[in-house]
Design a protein around this nucleic acid. Structure first.
Lengths: 206, 206
DNA sequence: GACAACATACATTCATGAATGTATAATGCG
DNA sequence: CGCATTATACATTCATGAATGTATGTTGTC
């Protein structure tokens, strides 16, 4: 029965992968540990060996899959560009197109965009929220730097810019992972462009 | 035990109200029929008398509370305005401020923005989706009319405009009902304005 | 007194978590 | 280096509780 260390880690990864698939397809609370075990090709015994309970699997997924993904996006924001706004635009287009071609990332996104931190997930709400606010702070600093470099209108409020951007992206991603309303390959660029252009009227004076 | 007809309807409303509160606070799947019954001050017997199961309560909430709310918003869009884009702007600000002052509406929003149509809710996905697409079609027609009246740049794509608007609003509402990131009374107008203005750079030529 | 509007009681299902069993890898010791 | 020991990585079994749905009891109203 006893496996080698590599085998053990493979089992753990299988369980995590099975968990994402199930959570993403049926939701966290509609997925039993038996579902996960069966998908992973093990029994609940194996699951309980690697994780304390279902909530811990959720947390492990956040640490192992979601956070690295966010970190990767934010790392790109650290690279200095002569045209930050254009950079941001390209980064988002690239991000969305990458997402369109990576089913696992779609599943991770679906899981963490939809999850409501209630019930057994409540304990993780604060921590996951903190890491999100950290990301938003970096975005705000990014806009601020863009203003300092005179690449962004200085009368815009970085906080409002950040929130606007964040809300739009969140809504877009949620729609994408939950419905077939959005075809990223066709809509990603026009949507991002529209956001940057604004919903301007021709004559907006009374 | 037998009540008058008004009493009966009052019981039904109590159950629905109790359901929104519980669903909104703990999520659909973390709420038991016992929770709802207790909140409503009845037993599960009463709940099962009025509804077949928990999913039917969810559906009743959609029909009784969510749909009328959407209808009300859309009805305002039907009124002809000389400045459609300004009208839309004002409408949204008004909508958001109304939401900020109506806890019940917040609960309904929280429920239907967060719910993932999996498990026992799957049967309602198609219908609720259809009513949503109907709304989006009206929005698209609205933008088209604005273009016809020369109040909106004619080279903008009404579909993209609609999607952009919808994604932003959805993300905004979801953030509002789930976190304390957004203070509608302070942020509603600036955010809406920022959306209409766009995230413009000063120099966006290379 | 018949039936509507519930309350109560019960059967069934199902997920959890813990306890236990077990075969094998890793490790220490002579 | 061979072997006994021990820890590991699970599988299996079992006890518990919670939620559901149903069946039946009760009471008031028309």
């Amino acid at each position: 029965m006893r496996k080698t260390k590599e085998d053990t880690q493979k089992t753990r990864q299988d369980i995590l992968q099975a968990a994402v698939e199930n959570f993403s397809a049926k939701g966290f609370f509609n997925t039993s540990l038996n579902d996960i075990a069966k998908t992973a090709g093990v029994t609940r015994g194996a699951v309980y060996w690697h994780f304390d309970n279902k909530a811990e699997i959720f947390d492990a997924l956040h640490a192992d899959l979601h956070e690295p993904f966010i970190e990767h996006v934010l790392a790109d924001l650290e690279t200095d560009s002569p045209h930050p706004i254009l950079q941001l635009r390209d980064l988002m287009s690239q991000l969305l197109l990458e997402l369109a071609e990576n089913p696992t990332k779609q599943q991770v996104m679906r899981l963490f965009l939809n999850c409501d931190y209630s019930g057994v997930l409540a304990p993780f709400k604060a921590r996951h929220k903190a890491s999100k606010e950290e990301s938003l702070a970096l975005f705000q600093a990014y806009f601020k730097r863009a203003q300092d470099k005179d690449k962004l209108s200085s009368d815009a409020d970085p906080e409002i810019l950040t929130l606007t951007f964040h809300c739009f992206l969140k809504g877009l991603l949620i729609e994408y992972v939950n419905t077939d309303l959005i075809d990223l390959k066709a809509h990603a660029k026009p949507l991002i462009n529209q956001l940057f252009e604004g919903l301007k009227a021709i004559h907006d004076q009374p």
